[in-house]
């Protein structure tokens, strides 16, 4: 059974038809990427999965279970965590407090502690700065913190919305290495990106989104060589 199954969803902002029948699946252990330009509906797709936006039509299933009846916070308890677009860390809370908030949905102190160790191992920088206020971190560190915060929920499925946004190329590379690492440790990842080249280099499969519709779906390998993708998203002619 697929970890995540999105079937023909239609989502609206008021009267604007933002998603026009999106279907995608993410198998357990995969990194799947969703690429596309501005306004293609990438973030809207993630919002529809996390329940912040309820699709008017179609189904979202997590391991076969319909997510429609659940509220956004309940979906977190089901094992779906999100690294939001633009990081959105709690700027006035310290690094530790941010991570602590990430574990809000959990009760076992020992498990939380183990996960904190895991996050600190993954991002030693956060450990160094754990008493610093989030807003004073650099962009790269904030991205680490946002990722760490999502991991503190111990998700089975991690949704990442444009982790490369506004970061220097060197930092982007290191963040993507970490994404691979997180995936290897057993977390399934759905990655939304504008930086298609980077995303396709670490993903297993990819979906190309355009104005609310999926226009292409293939393995990452195949998409990288696909003529349309190369022209439109990779800037290679």
């Amino acid at each position: 059974m697929a970890m995540l199954e999105v079937e023909n969803i239609h989502s609206y902002y008021g009267n604007i038809h933002a998603l026009k029948g999106i279907s995608l699946t993410v198998e357990e252990g995969e990194i799947v990427t969703l690429i596309g330009g501005n306004g293609a509906g990438k973030t809207t797709t993630l919002r529809s999965i996390t329940g912040i936006l309820k699709p008017r039509q179609g189904h979202v299933r997590l391991e076969g279970e319909e997510l429609a009846p659940y509220k956004p916070h309940q979906i977190v308890y089901k094992g779906v965590a999100m690294v939001p677009e633009g990081r959105r860390i709690f700027a006035r809370l310290s690094v530790s407090e941010n991570l602590d908030m990430g574990a809000y949905s959990r009760n076992s102190k020992s498990e939380i502690k183990a996960d904190l160790e895991r996050v600190f191992e993954l991002f030693p920088r956060l450990k160094e700065r754990r008493n610093q206020v989030g807003g004073t971190l650099s962009g790269g560190e904030q991205q680490m913190l946002a990722t760490g915060r999502a991991l503190m929920a111990h998700p089975r499925l991690l949704l990442m919305d444009e982790p490369s946004m506004g970061l220097a190329p060197v930092l982007v590379e290191s963040i993507f290495e970490k994404i691979t690492e997180i995936n290897k440790e057993g977390t399934t990842i759905l990655l939304v990106e504008q930086n298609a080249l980077m995303a396709l280099s670490i993903a297993n499969r990819g979906y190309v989104l355009q104005t609310g519709e999926i226009i292409l779906h293939d393995t990452a390998e195949a998409l990288r060589t696909n003529e349309v993708v190369r022209k439109a998203y990779l800037g290679i002619t």
Binding site: H73, V76, Y77, R88, F90, M101
Partner: peptide, 20 residues
């Protein structure tokens, strides 16, 4: 703690599992 998260960022508070 839930209030603090909500005050800082309501959307994210929801995203970490707080019923705002």
């Amino acid at each position: 703690r839930a209030w603090m998260a909500m005050r800082e960022d309501e959307d994210v508070a929801q995203a970490v599992g707080i019923y705002t």
